[in-house]
């Protein structure tokens, strides 16, 4: 299972490295979202500073939709999905591989967005350890849930509109918990609230990785 996961993740990341869709389209889109938030909020420094954590994670969520789309898109073109099914790879491995590839892209994107928030919204980076843990746990959850719902919505002509409707209510806890944990980290965590939110992120991540490993096989067979 692990070997298959590494293979699939390597394949997806190679495709992304060569096609440059993630770097040329998804990353600029995410930064653009940050700029749009500033425009919408009238570039008020205080408002931006207060809302920075939430805006960052909304930008991550929107980018997750694109990344998941892309990850499923490469499997629906030219019968590659069928080839993957016929390859004899363990479905759980395929799930873990695809989720890992999405997670790697999201982590890179979060670093970029973090720098963007520091530069554009004038945030003093603090509590980097907590921020890193938050990003890690949230990313695993987002990538796992995204990959699972991606395959659920795949092969349908309404995929573009169905995926956000399915995925966004599900990842709402990630948005809430990641935002609160990041806010706490940036403020130096005076109330000691970060561990609670990190725990919730961890539970979500473990839950969706587990669901994916179990459910990906049956979902792939039918698609």
């Amino acid at each position: 299972m692990w070997r298959d996961a590494v293979l699939v993740a390597g394949k997806d990341l190679r495709i992304e490295a060569r096609s440059r869709v993630a770097t040329n389209q998804v990353a600029p889109f995410a930064v653009l979202v940050l700029v749009l938030f500033a425009v919408a909020l009238d570039a008020d420094r205080r408002v931006l500073e207060q809302a920075a954590a939430g805006l960052l994670w909304v930008a991550v969520l929107l980018s997750t939709l694109l990344a998941v789309h892309r990850a499923q898109g490469v499997e629906s073109a030219e019968g590659t999905g069928d080839a993957l099914r016929l390859s004899g790879l363990d479905p759980a491995g395929i799930f873990l591989g695809k989720a890992a590839a999405v997670a790697v892209q999201l982590l890179a994107l979060e670093v970029l967005l973090g720098v963007g928030v520091v530069v554009l919204y004038d945030i003093d980076p603090a509590g980097l350890g907590t921020l890193a843990l938050t990003a890690g746990a949230a990313t695993v959850g987002l990538a796992a849930a995204g990959t699972l719902y991606g395959v659920l919505a795949t092969r349908s002509r309404v995929r573009e509109t169905l995926l956000p409707l399915l995925l966004l209510p599900v990842v709402a806890p990630v948005l809430i918990a990641a935002t609160r944990a990041s806010e706490a980290a940036l403020a130096g965590d005076p109330l000691g609230a970060a561990p609670q939110w990190l725990g919730l992120l961890g539970v979500f991540a473990v839950m969706y990785v587990g669901f994916g490993v179990v459910a990906f096989g049956p979902l792939m067979e039918e698609a």
């Binding site: 209510p169 918990a177 609160r180």
Partner: peptide
């Protein structure tokens, strides 16, 4: 999970 998230929120 949603329940706990919004409850704490």
């Amino acid at each position: 999970v949603n329940h706990f998230a919004v409850e704490w929120w």
